[in-house]
Design a protein around this nucleic acid. Structure first.
Length: 486
RNA sequence: GGCCCCAUCGUCUAGAGGCCUAGGACGCCAGCCUUUCAAGCUGGUAGCACGGGUUCGAAUCCCGUUGGGGCCA
């Protein structure tokens, strides 16, 4: 069997991580088994449509590296891929169902329906359409909806790939609407007609659709079409255990991108939310996930979206980046911070220190914190107290002495010997001579050269900064300590 | 409320009757390392929701209870 799976987002806003995870499983199944991944825009609810949302969805997929074979922006054998452009297909299906006696026209007013619901509520009856029009002849000319004539008794069984057979009592299912008054189909009709015509093999969707699945099964039966394989995957929950939503903070893919999460990390994290390869593997590239993926690895219980775990995974991915790749990815954040653009050669001065920075950055925007001082021209901005650190706290004269001793030692280093090894030797030596711990001496040097208490390792920093600027900044620090009016 | 789904450390999970005195990862705690901050290393903390069965034997199968979630209202 050819695997053909579709992702059917509604263009109602930013794509949500929960939806994208479904798309990920679609994509994985298709790619793993040599099938096709189709993107179909489900825009039959005109009132909820949002301008530009379709592009946002496609962008999110691209950002994660999920490519599609057929979709609204490319040709495919089953075009068009927007439901709003496929209306005649749904109408034809509805007409056929009516002709065969599986569906009927209904012109009940919303007043009647509301009254009905109210009386059902009062009588503590299950709510639902009372099939008033099922035995009537409603003229085509009248405004009307089309409803599916569901069986009145018996059961409908949904064969779910993950859960096995799920049985629903037909008497609890009412005659739902297939075609709305405006001639647009509901999800219940459109998805079925399209899945059939597009030869979809597996319907992977959130568990929230399981309760309407018997309606879909009945529709397939009425149309005489074979059912796809149903795969209802668990939903993602927020920290309060409820369905993940905006209340819980960021939910859109774009927000995660903006916060500095790497697409590889988010992909890995999402894949592991409800799926696992084996008992130990947690870090997997897209290709490794792909090679191991299958539906049987999916779990049945819903997983919580734990941002801490995602952050940790992101940090891990950042550490594992090639240094030059890391620099390129950090570049935009640094440029924004220093408010100018950087040539690649200028950026690549950082290659020596890049691995040390990678160990420290958890989220990409932090890249700027660890690198901006390399690109500042004027005096650094920091309080004098920082310069003294703990060892020279409230003793500017002592700190001054340390800085001056450092200056003296570093001036003697030959320009062509300005390396990590010789700086380490020189500065450790100096600390020894002065009879103090390296940390005591290094703090003022660090603050003087970076303007920060927390910075990358010192020797690499000084080498990257260069001898001239190091001495210049130490001089500036000495001057500040000499007149402690800060 | 009705229907449906689910149930292993705080979190993500491994486990498809004996391999389980339940394994891994993140977090957390302690120690080591250490020039700040990290990273790394070592050790530790913590779980099969409960009650009945079935079986020589149950985290694993069945029933019930409880809890959580979804859908409909």
């Amino acid at each position: 069997m050819t695997v053909r799976v579709r992702y059917g987002p509604s263009p109602t806003g930013e794509p949500h991580v929960g939806n994208i995870r479904t798309a990920l499983f679609d994509w994985l199944l298709a790619r793993r088994f040599g099938g096709q991944f189709i993107v179909r825009i489900e825009d039959t609810d005109q009132s909820r449509a949002v301008e530009g949302a379709e592009q946002l969805i496609l962008d999110a997929l691209s950002w994660l590296g999920l490519d599609w074979d057929e979709g609204p922006d490319c040709h495919g054998s089953f075009a068009p891929y927007r439901q709003s452009e496929r209306l005649p297909l749904y109408r034809a299906a509805a007409e056929r169902l009516i002709a065969d006696g599986h569906a009927y026209r209904c012109d009940c007013t919303s007043e009647r329906l509301n009254a009905l619901r109210k009386s059902q509520q009062q009588a503590k009856q299950p709510p639902g359409y009372d099939r008033y029009c099922r035995e009537r002849q409603v003229s085509e000319a009248q405004p009307h909806v089309v409803r599916l004539a569901m069986p009145r008794d018996g059961d409908t069984i949904v064969h779910d790939y993950l859960r096995g057979d799920v049985t629903f009592q037909n008497e609890l299912l009412d005659d739902h609407v297939l075609l709305k008054r405006d001639g647009f189909p509901t999800y219940h009709l459109a998805s079925i007609v399209d899945d059939h015509h597009m030869q979809i093999s597996h319907v992977i969707r959130g568990e929230e659709w399981l309760s309407s699945a018997p309606r879909h099964v009945r529709t397939y039966a009425a149309l005489g079409w074979p059912e796809p394989i149903w795969v209802h995957i668990p939903i993602i929950r927020g920290p309060d255990k409820g369905k993940l939503s905006k209340r819980h903070g960021a939910t859109s893919i774009r927000e995660y991108a903006a916060q500095g999460f790497l697409p590889e990390a988010l992909l890995n994290f999402l894949a592991l939310l409800g799926w696992s390869k084996d008992e130990t593997t947690t870090i997997m590239s897209r290709d490794e996930i792909l090679a191991a993926f299958d539906l049987d690895g999916l779990g049945l219980s819903s997983a919580m979206f734990d941002i801490e775990r995602l952050r940790e995974m992101n940090a891990r991915y950042i550490r594992d980046l090639e240094p030059l790749d890391f620099l390129q990815r950090g570049k935009p954040y640094l440029e924004r911070r220093i408010e100018r653009t950087l040539a690649d050669a200028d950026l690549e001065r950082l290659v020596l220190i890049a691995p040390a920075i990678q160990e420290r950055v958890k989220l990409m925007p932090e890249f700027a914190d660890y690198t901006d001082f390399f690109y500042r021209d004027g005096p650094l901005d920091y309080p004098n107290a920082e310069l003294m650190g703990r060892a020279y706290r409230n003793k500017p004269w002592a700190a001054l002495e340390a800085v001056e001793a450092t200056l003296q030692a570093l001036r003697q280093v030959k320009a062509d010997d300005w390396t990590v090894a010789s700086l380490e030797l020189a500065l450790r030596d100096l600390a020894n001579q002065r009879g103090e711990k390296p940390g005591a001496l290094f703090t003022p040097i660090r603050v003087a050269t970076t303007g920060k208490r927390v910075a990358p390792p010192l020797f690499e920093t000084l080498v990257t900064l260069g001898q001239a600027r190091t001495l210049e900044r130490l001089n500036a620090a000495a001057e500040r300590l000499a007149r402690p009016d800060d």
